[in-house]
Amino acid sequence: MEDKVKKLLTQLEDGVKEVFDSEKYKNYLKTMSNFHNYSFNNTLLICMQNPNASLVAGFNTWKKLKRIVNKGEKGIAILAPCNFKAYIEKDKLDPDTNNPIINANTGEIEKIKVPAMPNRFRTVHVFDINQTKGEPIPNLVEELKGNIKDYKNFIESLKAISIFPVKFENIDGECKGYCDFKDRIIAIKTGMDEKQIVKTAIHEIAHSILHGKENSDIDRKTAEVQAESVAFVVCNYYGIDTKDYSFGYVAGWSENKDIKELKNSLSVIQKTSNSLINQINEKVKELVKSKDVIEVKKDRKSLKDIENQIKDYKQNTAMKQDKQSLTQRICNER
């Protein structure tokens, strides 16, 4: 198993590198240049108000991208620096002595202008892509289509091994699922094909294992790369091809082409993937075995029913024969 997992990780790394060289990635970068890189504080504000936010921008930016904000949507409040600047005059100081500099011609202290409120901010509102509609945004991923052999056993196994309960939910927009550490649940979007459901479930289960409070120092990019890489390895181990989604997803969350988030996490990804595969194997065996026992019991019950039917048939036949014999004797006596 470990050799197969290593080969899958190599396949993932090569596939992600190919995405970086694709025309699709160039179009993606061109579009992403319209979006800001938000500060740590603003990122926290966004997450607090909309934990499922994936791509946010102001009203005018969405309009520029030929998308409009849905009527009635509540904006996400963040802080932005004020556009205007006020200045005050201060004494110009000698950098060596820290004493005011005297103008040789006028004999007066030289002055310089400095911003009066360099850290002044105002509240502005942005909107997540799920709050807008219009032209599609270039994406590096393609939603997985198709069904999976023995899907029922597979998804039951994933639910059984997950440390958080897994439930299905109507989720608006592009979000496929989420892991809620506060309420300790994993939600999967309804209406998707079996391949996408299984891949998303493993992705969120990986989050629940790797990215709790004890690992809060892991940045968002690394967390997403780790979770999707585990999902890719586990799915492909069972013959579920997710490259159309996983390669682009990992590339989209990587800082640049050196994919340091992936390379620095290979041991974590391998260990987590191996653990999940082992747990899934054991749980599938248990489910299959329990269902076989149920089937055997059903078969035994069926056999017993047949035996009872035969017994009833014989009894009914014997009663008919006795009745016919009695009728015949009465006729003869007459």
Rank of each mutant, 00 (worst) to 15 (best):
D322R: 07
G252D: 04
E224R: 04
N34V: 12
F232P: 00
H36T: 14
V230H: 01
F181S: 07
D180K: 04
G212A: 11
I171E: 02
D217K: 04
I137C: 01
V16F: 01
E169F: 05
N34C: 10
E89D: 09
I163L: 13
R120P: 01
W253R: 02
G75Y: 00
N105R: 12
K260L: 13
N41V: 12
D172H: 08
K64D: 08
E261P: 00
Q324N: 15
I101P: 10
L8G: 08
P95R: 00
R184Y: 09
D21S: 01
D183L: 13
C175W: 05
S229M: 03
H207P: 09
G146K: 08
L266M: 10
P138C: 05
E194W: 01
C175P: 02
L140P: 05
R220T: 08
I280N: 07
N139W: 09
E261D: 07
S265I: 08
E255Y: 03
K64I: 15
N103Q: 06
E286K: 10
G177Y: 00
F247A: 07
E224Y: 06
K271S: 07
D193K: 07
K74Q: 14
V293H: 05
D299E: 13
I161S: 12
L44I: 10
C179V: 15
Q270I: 15
D322V: 10
S325Y: 09
Y245L: 08
L93Q: 14
S290C: 15
T132E: 09
I102M: 09
L55A: 02
L29H: 02
L287W: 05
Q328M: 12
K24N: 07
N316M: 13
I188P: 00
V56R: 00
I171Y: 01
M1R: 00
N236V: 11
